[in-house]
Amino acid sequence: MSLRANLVLATCTACVLVLGAVPGTAGVAQAHAVLPKPVAYPARGQLAHQQAMDDGACYGWARQQTGVDPSRIASAPVPVIVPGGERVVGAARGAAAGAVVGAIGGDAGDGAATGAAVGAVAGGIAHRQHRRQAAALSAQMQSSNDWALSSYWQAWTACMTGRGYSVQ
């Protein structure tokens, strides 16, 4: 290989490593924040045992009214999609195609180096697109979970308030 081809190949390899193209090292991981349970205070002197019974009854009623079970939502993690390796795959494909084209032109090494650089850039574009899609999916699922929990806690609050509790 020529000095130019070696330089291009070394530069591509460095870019791939610096940009984090090693499979599994880049991804979307978002914390799943669960809406906290409101606190109910006895407003009519209810004892702890009575409050526990009322809480259970309101749990069932709110679940029936909303179709939401907060224990399922709280235990269901938002999916984490970990894309990775697109740059490496792109560089490999580009190098293979470049070597074929370069061999026709008389210098497979230069063709492979140029193809690897182009492939790494194309793989980087695919990598960023996958990350955006994963982030959008995670945000959508988190928003849906938050809305469902909010609806459930509103129903639970109405039930507990009706049973003589002050809810905050």
Rank of each mutant, 00 (worst) to 15 (best):
Q64T: 12
G20W: 08
M160Q: 09
V16I: 10
A139H: 11
R63T: 11
R163I: 01
G85H: 08
T66Q: 02
D69T: 08
R128G: 07
R163M: 13
R163Q: 12
A92C: 09
Y152M: 00
N145S: 15
D146S: 14
A112N: 04
P42T: 04
Q46R: 00
P38L: 00
V39E: 10
M160V: 09
N6L: 10
A117W: 10
P23L: 03
G56C: 03
R132F: 13
M53L: 14
Q50D: 04
Q64H: 13
P42V: 06
V68A: 05
A112E: 03
A95Y: 06
G98H: 11
A48D: 13
P36A: 03
Q129N: 13
G115L: 01
G98K: 13
V167K: 02
L17M: 06
L149N: 05
N145A: 11
G119R: 03
A21S: 12
R131A: 13
A48K: 11
A155S: 11
V8Y: 00
G102C: 08
G56E: 08
G115V: 02
D110A: 14
R72H: 15
A5C: 12
A113C: 09
S138H: 09
R4W: 05
A103L: 15
V80Q: 13
Q46I: 01
T114C: 10
V89T: 06
R72F: 12
A155V: 04
G85V: 11
S143P: 03
H32L: 00
G24T: 04
Q50V: 12
Q168K: 13
P83R: 03
Y165G: 00
V8S: 01
A62P: 04
Q51W: 06
L17I: 07
P23T: 12
G115W: 02
A134Y: 08
G98E: 08
G106Y: 10
A97R: 13
C12E: 12
V100S: 07
A126F: 04
L149M: 12
G27W: 03
G98W: 10
A117K: 03
C58I: 03
L7R: 07
A117G: 12
P70F: 03
P79R: 10
I104C: 12
H127E: 15
A103C: 05
